[in-house]
């Protein structure tokens, strides 16, 4: 997993509530068997609108998305975070996120930051007014700020998720260190649970 420490970049403003993963990456593009290449299809139907923010070259290079509440609701497809990562995004700021989407992001090193609606509104307005305006997302300090220091907000994050992101750790490798505990659990597990095939 890619480490996340600090990102300073333009912010992409997408101020809508309840953006679902079908919008982020439509189902017809989930047929690829690779993890990469999904960015070109991200928000596909909205991109038909020439005024859609992703069509504005002024936001090119933005690594931070600022968006509305309940971002990433719907399908569990990890293709959605993959698509956003493929667009070059490293962090998403919103008032709230859907659970599975947030988990999926954490697994690939894409940081989800919850800020209150007013703070998000401010960042959206600022980015809409001046696409070149940068924001700083600092995971160690748990802050989102403007480079001039006029805006600083702290955010909450699960300490373990923070640790994993800062170190870029492989969750599976960590769990495999607990192989003894898993085996012990299996040995004490009820024989009544079904098995798909004889083991």
């Amino acid at each position: 997993m890619q480490k996340f420490t600090r990102v300073q970049s333009k912010a992409l403003p997408l101020n809508r509530a309840d953006i679902d993963t079908d919008q982020i990456i439509p189902a017809q593009y989930l047929k690829r068997i690779e993890r990469t290449g999904f960015g070109q299809f991200a928000f596909e139907s909205w991109r038909n609108d020439p005024d859609f923010v992703l069509n504005n070259p002024a936001y090119e290079g933005a690594q931070v998305l600022v968006t509305g509440p309940n971002f990433g609701c719907g399908s569990s497809r990890e293709h959605a975070p993959w698509a956003l990562e493929d667009l070059g995004l490293r962090a998403i700021i919103a008032p709230s996120f859907a659970d599975i989407f947030r988990n999926n992001c954490a697994k690939i090193g894409l940081l989800t930051v919850e800020l209150d609606q007013d703070a998000c509104n401010y960042l959206v307005a600022r980015a809409e007014e001046n696409p070149a305006a940068e924001v700083v997302v600092d995971l160690e300090a748990q802050t989102v700020s403007t480079p001039d220091g006029s805006f600083v907000r702290t955010f909450e994050i699960d300490p373990f998720v923070k640790y994993m992101l800062l170190e870029g750790l492989d969750s599976i490798a960590l769990t495999l260190l607990q192989d003894d505990e898993i085996s012990a659990f299996e040995n004490s597990r009820s024989s009544l649970y079904p098995k798909v095939t004889a083991s």
Binding site: R35, S76, R77, E78, H79, P81, I100, N103, N104, K107, I108, D158, S171, I172, T175, L176, I182, E186
Partner: peptide, 21 residues
């Protein structure tokens, strides 16, 4: 019963466990 993403699918395949809050 709950839905998971592909990284978690991999985690369950490899370990039959899942870290969850």
């Amino acid at each position: 019963a709950f839905g998971i993403g592909t990284s978690e699918v991999e985690h369950v395949l490899a370990t039959q466990t899942l870290p969850q809050s």
